[in-house]
C-alpha cells in the first residue's frame, strides 16, 4: 500500500491547491476522507473515466457533499477531467462547486449537500441496482455530524428491510462538526452498536487513514449478506498541520498564501520521503 500512501499525499496536495486558489473552502472534512477515496478508486470501483455514465458501474455517493474538493481531486487523478479544472473550484461558471453536483461534474453519481439526503439516494440506487440485477456495488460516504440527521436512520432501516447487501457505506468519524465536537453537540456513541441494531454489518477501522485497514474492511463488506457500515476513525484536517491544529474550525477555513506554501512544503517533503 506504499503506492496508495503516496497517492494520498498527492491528493492532499491537489486539495490544497484547489482550495488555495480561492483562499477558502471545506478543507477539514476533505482531508479526513482522502484514504477512503483513494482505496475505493484504486482497488474497488468498477467505473470508466472515459464513460462516466457506464451502465452497471459501481457508484459512489458522497452524502457529505462538502467534501467535494477531495472527490474532485481523486476524479481528476483518475482521468475524469483535467487537473486544471481543480483550479476553478467555486469560480463563476465552474463545473466544480463546493458541494457535489451530478449535473456538472463527470464522475459524480449524485447531487449532495443537504445532509442526509444523499444517503437515502444511495439506498434508492442500491435498490435500483437490485431490480436491474446488474451486480453493481453502491458506496456511500456520510459524515459523523450528518449522522445526527433523522434521514440517515430512515435510510438505514430501508436498506436493512430491503436486504441491500450491495450497499457499502463509510462514516467519516472525525469527531468534529461546525459548532464543536460531536460529543459536545449531540454524541453518536455507541455508533457501531447503533448500526448493528439497525440491521447492518459493521466494521470499525481504528485508523481511518490506513489504506490497508480500509481495503480489508471493504473486502469484508463485499462478502456480507447485509448492508455494511465501515466506521472510519479519522482526523479532521489530517495530513496538513495547520488544518489539523485548527480542529473544528477546519470545517471551512481561510487558506492564505503563507499557509498554503508551508503546507505544500510539508507535503512535498512527505512525497519525497
Amino acid at each position: 500500500m506504499l503506492k496508495l500512501d503516496k497517492e494520498c499525499r498527492i491528493i492532499r496536495k491537489l486539495i490544497l491547491k484547489t482550495i488555495g486558489t480561492l483562499g477558502v473552502g471545506h478543507i477539514g472534512g476533505s482531508l479526513s476522507i482522502v484514504e477512503a477515496l483513494v482505496v475505493l478508486y484504486a482497488n474497488h470501483m468498477n467505473c470508466d473515466p472515459q464513460n462516466p455514465k457506464m451502465a452497471g458501474r459501481d457508484r459512489l455517493i458522497v452524502s457529505k457533499g462538502h467534501s467535494g474538493p477531495a472527490v474532485y481531486s481523486v476524479l481528476a487523478r483518475k482521468g475524469y477531467f483535467s487537473e486544471d479544472w481543480l483550479l476553478t473550484l467555486n469560480q463563476p461558471g465552474t463545473n466544480l462547486p463546493s458541494h457535489c453536483d451530478m449535473n456538472l461534474t463527470p464522475g459524480i453519481d449524485m447531487t449532495t449537500g443537504s445532509l442526509g439526503q444523499g444517503f437515502s439516494c444511495a439506498a434508492g440506487i442500491a435498490k435500483a441496482s437490485k431490480i436491474r440485477n446488474d451486480g453493481a456495488t453502491i458506496y456511500a460516504i456520510i459524515g459523523d455530524g450528518e449522522s445526527q440527521e433523522g434521514q440517515i436512520w430512515e435510510a438505514s432501516m430501508f436498506a436493512s428491510q430491503h436486504k441491500l447487501d450491495n450497499l457499502i457505506a463509510f462514516t467519516d468519524y472525525n469527531k468534529m462538526q461546525i459548532d464543536g465536537t460531536i460529543d459536545e453537540i449531540c454524541a453518536l456513541e455507541p455508533l457501531d452498536a447503533k448500526w448493528r441494531a439497525f440491521g447492518w454489518d459493521v466494521v470499525v477501522v481504528k485508523n481511518g487513514h490506513d489504506c490497508n485497514e480500509i481495503d480489508s474492511a471493504i473486502r469484508f463488506a463485499k462478502f456480507s449478506n447485509k448492508p455494511t457500515m465501515i466506521i472510519l476513525h479519522t482526523i479532521k484536517g489530517n495530513g496538513i498541520s495547520f488544518a489539523e491544529s485548527a480542529g473544528v474550525d477546519s470545517h471551512s477555513m481561510q487558506v492564505n498564501k503563507e499557509l498554503l506554501a508551508k503546507a505544500m512544503e510539508e507535503l512535498e517533503k512527505a512525497i519525497i520521503d
Partner: peptide
C-alpha cells in the same frame, strides 16, 4: 423524506 430521496436515487438509475 426518505421516500423522496430514494426516488431520486432510483431515477438516477
Amino acid at each position: 423524506q426518505n421516500m423522496a430521496s430514494i426516488a431520486a436515487g432510483m431515477s438516477s438509475y
